[in-house]
Simulated scan of single mutants.
Amino acid sequence: MRLRLLPDRRYRDREHAGRVLAEALDAFTGRPDVIVLALPRGGVDVAAPIAERLRAPLDVCLVHKLGVPGWPEVAAGAIGEDGALVVNDDVVRESGTTDADLTRAIDAARTELRRRQTLYRHDRPPAAVAGKTVLIVDDGVATGATMAAALRTLRHRSVAGAVVAVPTGPSEVADLFPDADRVVCPDRPGYFVGVSAAYDDFPQLTDARVAEVLARFAPE
Protein backbone atom coordinates (compact mmCIF):
# COMPACT_ATOMS: atom_id res chain seq x y z
CA MET A 1 0.00 0.00 0.00
CA ARG A 2 1.35 3.43 -0.94
CA LEU A 3 1.15 5.89 1.93
CA ARG A 4 0.16 9.49 1.36
CA LEU A 5 2.62 12.09 2.66
CA LEU A 6 0.69 14.44 4.94
CA PRO A 7 1.42 18.18 4.60
CA ASP A 8 3.03 18.42 8.05
CA ARG A 9 5.10 15.26 7.64
CA ARG A 10 8.26 15.13 5.60
CA TYR A 11 8.67 11.39 5.00
CA ARG A 12 6.46 8.44 4.09
CA ASP A 13 8.62 5.99 6.04
CA ARG A 14 12.26 5.35 6.99
CA GLU A 15 13.18 4.10 3.52
CA HIS A 16 11.87 7.29 1.94
CA ALA A 17 13.78 9.34 4.51
CA GLY A 18 16.94 7.42 3.62
CA ARG A 19 16.53 8.22 -0.07
CA VAL A 20 16.08 11.92 0.68
CA LEU A 21 19.08 11.90 2.99
CA ALA A 22 21.17 10.02 0.43
CA GLU A 23 20.68 12.86 -2.06
CA ALA A 24 22.12 15.28 0.49
CA LEU A 25 25.14 13.00 0.85
CA ASP A 26 25.90 12.63 -2.86
CA ALA A 27 29.38 14.09 -2.44
CA PHE A 28 30.39 10.87 -0.68
CA THR A 29 29.32 8.58 -3.55
CA GLY A 30 31.84 5.96 -4.61
CA ARG A 31 34.56 7.04 -2.17
CA PRO A 32 36.54 4.02 -0.94
CA ASP A 33 37.20 5.70 2.41
CA VAL A 34 33.50 6.06 3.29
CA ILE A 35 31.49 3.68 5.46
CA VAL A 36 27.89 3.98 6.65
CA LEU A 37 27.12 3.05 10.26
CA ALA A 38 23.54 2.87 11.49
CA LEU A 39 22.27 3.22 15.04
CA PRO A 40 19.91 0.28 15.55
CA ARG A 41 17.24 -0.31 15.39
CA GLY A 42 15.52 2.59 13.60
CA GLY A 43 18.58 3.90 11.83
CA VAL A 44 19.09 0.71 9.85
CA ASP A 45 16.17 1.19 7.46
CA VAL A 46 17.30 4.78 6.85
CA ALA A 47 20.93 3.79 6.30
CA ALA A 48 20.28 1.01 3.77
CA PRO A 49 19.19 3.30 0.87
CA ILE A 50 22.12 5.59 1.69
CA ALA A 51 24.66 2.77 1.49
CA GLU A 52 23.11 1.57 -1.77
CA ARG A 53 23.20 4.98 -3.45
CA LEU A 54 26.69 5.84 -2.20
CA ARG A 55 28.00 2.32 -2.99
CA ALA A 56 29.39 2.15 0.54
CA PRO A 57 29.63 -0.63 3.13
CA LEU A 58 26.97 -0.73 5.84
CA ASP A 59 27.30 -1.84 9.43
CA VAL A 60 25.77 -0.92 12.77
CA CYS A 61 27.34 1.20 15.47
CA LEU A 62 26.53 -0.68 18.64
CA VAL A 63 26.42 1.68 21.58
CA HIS A 64 24.50 1.19 24.80
CA LYS A 65 23.55 3.94 27.20
CA LEU A 66 24.46 3.57 30.85
CA GLY A 67 21.26 4.22 32.72
CA VAL A 68 20.82 6.23 35.90
CA PRO A 69 19.01 4.32 38.67
CA GLY A 70 15.39 5.45 38.79
CA TRP A 71 15.69 7.55 35.59
CA PRO A 72 16.15 5.13 32.69
CA GLU A 73 15.81 7.92 30.11
CA VAL A 74 18.85 9.73 31.56
CA ALA A 75 22.28 8.54 30.43
CA ALA A 76 25.25 8.58 32.77
CA GLY A 77 27.36 7.62 29.78
CA ALA A 78 27.67 4.97 27.13
CA ILE A 79 29.80 2.04 26.15
CA GLY A 80 30.64 0.81 22.67
CA GLU A 81 30.98 -2.80 21.62
CA ASP A 82 34.74 -2.35 21.37
CA GLY A 83 34.84 -1.40 25.06
CA ALA A 84 35.21 2.34 24.55
CA LEU A 85 33.61 3.93 27.61
CA VAL A 86 32.20 7.44 27.84
CA VAL A 87 31.04 8.70 31.25
CA ASN A 88 29.23 11.98 31.82
CA ASP A 89 30.72 13.10 35.14
CA ASP A 90 28.15 15.88 35.55
CA VAL A 91 25.23 13.44 35.25
CA VAL A 92 26.92 10.95 37.57
CA ARG A 93 27.46 13.62 40.20
CA GLU A 94 24.06 15.32 39.93
CA SER A 95 22.11 12.04 39.87
CA GLY A 96 23.96 10.52 42.81
CA THR A 97 25.05 7.55 40.73
CA THR A 98 27.56 5.54 42.73
CA ASP A 99 30.54 3.56 41.49
CA ALA A 100 28.58 0.39 42.19
CA ASP A 101 25.62 1.71 40.14
CA LEU A 102 27.95 2.50 37.27
CA THR A 103 29.60 -0.93 37.42
CA ARG A 104 26.20 -2.65 37.30
CA ALA A 105 25.14 -0.49 34.34
CA ILE A 106 28.37 -1.25 32.47
CA ASP A 107 28.02 -5.01 33.07
CA ALA A 108 24.39 -4.98 31.86
CA ALA A 109 25.32 -2.93 28.80
CA ARG A 110 28.15 -5.28 27.88
CA THR A 111 25.79 -8.25 28.09
CA GLU A 112 23.26 -6.53 25.81
CA LEU A 113 25.97 -5.48 23.34
CA ARG A 114 27.22 -9.07 23.09
CA ARG A 115 23.67 -10.25 22.47
CA ARG A 116 23.14 -7.72 19.71
CA GLN A 117 26.51 -8.38 18.11
CA THR A 118 25.74 -12.09 17.85
CA LEU A 119 22.17 -11.53 16.68
CA TYR A 120 22.87 -8.80 14.15
CA ARG A 121 26.18 -9.94 12.68
CA HIS A 122 26.22 -13.66 13.48
CA ASP A 123 29.63 -13.16 15.08
CA ARG A 124 31.12 -11.28 12.12
CA PRO A 125 33.59 -8.71 13.45
CA PRO A 126 32.63 -5.03 13.40
CA ALA A 127 33.53 -3.17 10.23
CA ALA A 128 36.99 -1.61 10.36
CA VAL A 129 36.62 2.16 10.65
CA ALA A 130 40.15 3.37 11.44
CA GLY A 131 41.15 5.97 8.87
CA LYS A 132 37.64 6.00 7.35
CA THR A 133 35.09 8.76 6.96
CA VAL A 134 32.06 7.48 8.84
CA LEU A 135 28.50 8.53 8.05
CA ILE A 136 26.60 7.70 11.20
CA VAL A 137 22.86 7.43 10.58
CA ASP A 138 19.74 7.34 12.73
CA ASP A 139 16.07 7.89 11.93
CA GLY A 140 16.13 11.23 13.73
CA VAL A 141 17.49 13.11 16.71
CA ALA A 142 15.64 14.38 19.77
CA THR A 143 18.08 14.93 22.65
CA GLY A 144 21.02 13.46 20.71
CA ALA A 145 22.43 11.56 23.69
CA THR A 146 22.90 8.24 21.92
CA MET A 147 24.35 9.83 18.81
CA ALA A 148 26.77 11.90 20.89
CA ALA A 149 27.92 8.78 22.70
CA ALA A 150 28.37 6.96 19.40
CA LEU A 151 30.50 9.80 18.06
CA ARG A 152 32.74 9.74 21.09
CA THR A 153 33.26 6.00 20.91
CA LEU A 154 34.07 6.27 17.20
CA ARG A 155 36.79 8.78 17.98
CA HIS A 156 38.34 6.08 20.15
CA ARG A 157 38.43 3.92 17.01
CA SER A 158 40.56 6.47 15.11
CA VAL A 159 38.11 7.44 12.38
CA ALA A 160 39.35 10.05 9.91
CA GLY A 161 36.05 11.91 9.95
CA ALA A 162 32.56 11.60 11.41
CA VAL A 163 29.40 12.91 9.74
CA VAL A 164 26.06 12.80 11.53
CA ALA A 165 23.30 12.09 9.02
CA VAL A 166 19.70 12.14 10.23
CA PRO A 167 16.43 12.91 8.41
CA THR A 168 14.94 15.10 11.13
CA GLY A 169 15.87 16.93 14.30
CA PRO A 170 15.40 20.20 16.20
CA SER A 171 16.53 23.47 14.67
CA GLU A 172 19.66 23.48 16.84
CA VAL A 173 20.63 19.92 15.85
CA ALA A 174 24.08 20.93 14.59
CA ASP A 175 24.95 22.35 18.01
CA LEU A 176 24.25 19.01 19.70
CA PHE A 177 27.29 17.30 18.19
CA PRO A 178 30.54 19.20 18.69
CA ASP A 179 32.42 15.94 18.03
CA ALA A 180 31.04 15.71 14.48
CA ASP A 181 32.85 17.13 11.48
CA ARG A 182 29.52 17.80 9.80
CA VAL A 183 25.81 17.40 10.52
CA VAL A 184 23.39 16.68 7.67
CA CYS A 185 19.71 17.02 8.60
CA PRO A 186 17.22 18.04 5.87
CA ASP A 187 14.22 18.53 8.17
CA ARG A 188 14.67 20.99 11.06
CA PRO A 189 11.23 22.30 12.05
CA GLY A 190 11.08 25.41 14.16
CA TYR A 191 8.73 23.61 16.54
CA PHE A 192 10.10 20.11 16.99
CA VAL A 193 7.70 17.70 18.70
CA GLY A 194 9.59 14.44 18.14
CA VAL A 195 11.15 12.19 15.54
CA SER A 196 7.97 10.27 14.74
CA ALA A 197 6.18 13.51 13.78
CA ALA A 198 8.24 13.65 10.58
CA TYR A 199 6.89 10.29 9.34
CA ASP A 200 3.61 8.96 8.01
CA ASP A 201 4.62 5.42 8.93
CA PHE A 202 6.99 4.88 11.86
CA PRO A 203 6.75 1.29 13.13
CA GLN A 204 9.04 -0.21 15.76
CA LEU A 205 11.78 -2.19 14.02
CA THR A 206 12.66 -5.67 15.24
CA ASP A 207 16.02 -7.28 15.85
CA ALA A 208 15.17 -9.68 13.02
CA ARG A 209 14.75 -6.76 10.62
CA VAL A 210 18.16 -5.35 11.59
CA ALA A 211 19.80 -8.73 11.01
CA GLU A 212 18.03 -9.11 7.65
CA VAL A 213 19.26 -5.74 6.36
CA LEU A 214 22.82 -6.29 7.55
CA ALA A 215 22.91 -9.71 5.90
CA ARG A 216 22.24 -8.05 2.53
CA PHE A 217 25.34 -5.91 2.97
CA ALA A 218 27.58 -8.51 4.60
CA PRO A 219 30.97 -8.90 2.88
CA GLU A 220 31.32 -12.16 0.99
Rank of each mutant, 00 (worst) to 15 (best):
P170D: 11
L113N: 13
Y11N: 01
R115Q: 13
G96R: 04
R188F: 03
A180Q: 06
V163W: 10
V166M: 09
E112F: 10
R14V: 01
R155Y: 11
V164W: 14
H16L: 05
I79W: 14
A78C: 15
G169V: 02
R115I: 03
R55N: 12
D200M: 14
D26F: 04
V166E: 00
D45V: 04
R116P: 03
E112L: 14
L6I: 00
A56M: 08
S171V: 07
L37E: 12
G190F: 06
V134M: 04
A47M: 06
D89T: 12
R2N: 15
S171Q: 11
G190I: 02
D123L: 10
T133V: 07
A27R: 15
G96N: 08
T98V: 10
D200T: 09
T153A: 08
I35N: 01
D82N: 12
Q204T: 12
Q204I: 04
V134C: 04
Y11F: 15
A218V: 09
A108M: 08
D179M: 06
D139L: 02
P49G: 12
P32N: 11
V183C: 08
T153Q: 08
P170M: 09
A47F: 02
G83N: 09
R155G: 13
R10Y: 10
L21T: 03
L37H: 06
Q117V: 01
A27F: 05
D138Y: 05
N88C: 04
P72W: 09
G83T: 03
T97H: 03
K132M: 13
V87K: 10
T97I: 07
V44K: 00
D187M: 01
A215Q: 15
I35F: 03
V134H: 02
V60N: 05
F192Q: 06
R157Y: 13
G169L: 07
L54F: 08
P72N: 13
V163L: 10
L3P: 00
G140F: 04
I136K: 01
G77H: 08
D123V: 00
A22I: 01
I35K: 04
L39G: 02
T143V: 00
D139C: 02
V92Q: 04
V213I: 15
A38M: 10
V86C: 13
A105N: 11
R116T: 03
E15I: 05
S158F: 11
K65R: 15
T98D: 12
H16P: 00
Y191S: 12
S158N: 14
E15M: 01
T146D: 03
P49W: 07
A128C: 04
G96Q: 09
E52F: 01
D26V: 05
L39R: 01
F177D: 00
A47Q: 06
K132W: 05
L154A: 06
P49A: 11
V163K: 07
A218E: 10
G194N: 08
A211V: 05
R182D: 00
F202Q: 05
R121A: 00
R114Y: 10
G67R: 15
I35M: 08
A56K: 06
R9N: 06
Y120G: 02
R209E: 14
L21Q: 03
V63P: 03
A208P: 08
D8Q: 14
D201H: 15
A145I: 00
L54N: 09
D187W: 05
A78F: 14
D90F: 07
R209A: 15
V164C: 12
V166G: 05
C185T: 01
